[in-house]
Amino acid sequence: MIPNSFDYKKATSVDEAISLLGDDVQILGGGHSLIPTLKLRLNAPGTLVDISKIESLKVIRDNENSITIGGGATHASIAADAALSEHAPMMTQAAKEIGDIQVRNFGTIGGSMAHADPAADWPAVLLACDANVVIQGKGGKREVDIDQFFKGFYETALADGEIITAVRIPKMASNRHSVYVKFKQPASRFAIVGCAVGIEMEGGVVKSARIGMTGVGESAYRAMNVEKALVGQALTAESIEAAVKNVTEGAEVMSDHYASQKYRTHLAHVYVKRALKMLM
């Protein structure tokens, strides 16, 4: 359980961190995605740039219409944040379900997003929250819509030499409701199916919906056809049943010894249904 040798550089600012990035360099955030792979020697970077000590990345800021979560904010700090709890309760709810106490204390949202595990919780939740990702690289800052961020299997819009500095979560209006539900693999406790739903109601019917799914396909995705089917409908058992039919459409549904493709597909239906019923 000893990683291969590497060099370690501690960055004290985002600019410094970026200046240290290059070939064969990886970023060490909370380390809870990266270090386990190093221990098994599945990954052996030449240099690690530690951004976990950059205070500015840990800040959770309450803005007028949004909340900005620093990329270095831990799951525990998100779970405990009062502003998020009030304005984006699904974020705090989901944060409490990630990993375990120890992981939540040190694992970071930016690290989890950059790692983009196909069964991680954040991607589904952030998709449903309509988040924006703030990225900084040698060329400066850019902001990426969450819909454009998760590209595929462990793949994101993050280019070499870039760091996730923050995630911006829009505050929810009073007519918006959200929930995150998941079915866990009992060993790893990763999601077999995780379903995050955010809906906007108007006049008793769904005005808009965002549904993020994780664990099902090669990366988190939005169940757009379910979203579409819900718009204009009142949330009833029948309308939900009708809407969720094709929740896995477009996803390459994964299969492993614990959950076959068939079963996972079934669970995806069950969980999106459950999530929606909780918002009825």
Partner: peptide
């Protein structure tokens, strides 16, 4: 190690 620890994501790997 890849056989022992990678099962969770192998179908994804195959697709990729």
């Amino acid at each position: 190690v890849i056989a022992r620890t990678g099962q969770r994501v192998l179908s994804g790997v195959a697709n990729v």
